[in-house]
């Protein structure tokens, strides 16, 4: 049995390093590239190429897939990578929007691509002669997510405080502190890992942040349920508090890990099947990575860090009660 209680100091150091590293890297990126996190398409400038075939001759030979194919060929030849591709219906036809990473260089390359696509489509296919436009644009997103982020943050804080109150009433106040600490710690690790790994921030990250806290709360439920049972057991009356909490932490590790792992597997299945469906792994790799970060921070924080810190709290409380 691993004695987590004896590893408290080293675990605090590890967590502090991760959080400090996240903060430092985030600040460096903030001052060098303008943002603490790596904002995704929802929140930053992207380049797009729009092929509008509203005025195209929609004869039998007309095919939106052939346009897509032609565009992809040109993008590939010019070394630009399509991040997402969407089709839109219009009353007179439709348009295809290709999204690319931001940057002046990419924009210049895309302008070249636009000329080539226009020329190729008109040359290769007679039905494309009336093709309306192919245009490259720079799209600068307004950061409308700030309010959502603020509200999500407030919701998480309120939930953590309510959990603290509930556990303080139903369990022990030391356990309530442990659970609150776990929430704060895991969320901090999650945010730090996002800053370190430069995973793209989209609206899904808010949801994953909330899932991190929820999974922590459920994990704390398992952990402190076991702890309470262990401390109440008569056979443990004379055992050192640290040993009791170590044993309970060991006991709770398996169910916790299984639950979190099952959740991650489920997320990966969703991401994988969706990627197969869309034939685009690029748009799903970030949410999948975000899920992994969520899993790592929650498992490490709840199953390893929290019991080690709590064992110390329990020992202090136990000693005080005995004296």
């Amino acid at each position: 049995m691993t004695k987590l209680s004896s590893k408290m100091h080293i675990l605090i150091v590890i967590s502090s390093i991760i959080i400090a590293l996240g903060l430092a890297l985030g600040l460096i990126f903030h001052f060098t590239s303008g943002s603490f996190f790596n904002y995704g398409g929802d929140y930053k400038t992207v380049n797009t190429v729009t092929v509008n075939y509203a005025l195209a001759d929609q004869s039998e030979t007309f095919n939106k897939d052939s346009i897509t194919e032609e565009c992809n060929k040109v993008f590939e030849e010019n070394g630009v990578c399509v991040v997402t591709k969407t089709y839109a219906e219009t009353t007179q036809g439709g348009e295809i929007v290709f999204q690319f990473a931001a940057g002046e260089e990419t924009y210049k390359t895309l302008q070249t691509c636009v000329e080539k696509i226009t020329a190729n489509l008109k040359l290769n296919d007679a039905s494309m002669s009336g093709l309306s436009v192919v245009a490259a644009s720079q799209v600068n997103a307004v950061k409308g997510g700030c309010k959502a982020l603020l509200n999500c943050g407030i919701a998480i804080i309120v939930a953590a405080v309510l959990q603290f109150v509930y556990l303080a009433i139903r369990y022990k106040w030391t356990m309530a502190i442990g659970a609150f600490l776990a929430n704060v710690h895991n969320l901090a690790i999650f945010i730090a890992l996002l800053a370190i790994t430069r995973i793209q921030i989209s609206s899904a990250v808010f949801a994953f942040g909330a899932i991190t806290v929820l999974a922590t709360m459920i994990g704390c439920g398992i952990l402190f349920g076991k702890m309470r049972k262990a401390f109440n057991a008569e056979s443990n009356a004379k055992v050192d508090a640290k040993d009791v909490s170590d044993a309970a932490a060991c006991d709770s590790l398996k169910p916790m890990a299984v639950l979190y792992l099952a959740l991650v597997i489920a997320l990966v299945v969703i991401a994988l099947v969706s990627a197969i469906g869309s034939l685009s792994f690029a748009s799903l790799i970030m949410p999948a990575l975000c899920a992994v970060v969520c899993f790592i921070s929650t498992l490490y924080g709840t199953a390893i860090f929290t019991p080690s810190v709590y064992s110390r709290l329990a020992a202090i409380h136990h000693n005080k009660a005995n004296s």
Partner: peptide
């Protein structure tokens, strides 16, 4: 306990959170 905590969390998210 586990469900109560999760339910409180869900309620708070639903009432205070916006959008997604």
């Amino acid at each position: 306990d586990m469900h109560v905590v999760a339910l409180v969390f869900a309620l708070v998210l639903a009432l205070i959170g916006v959008g997604e």
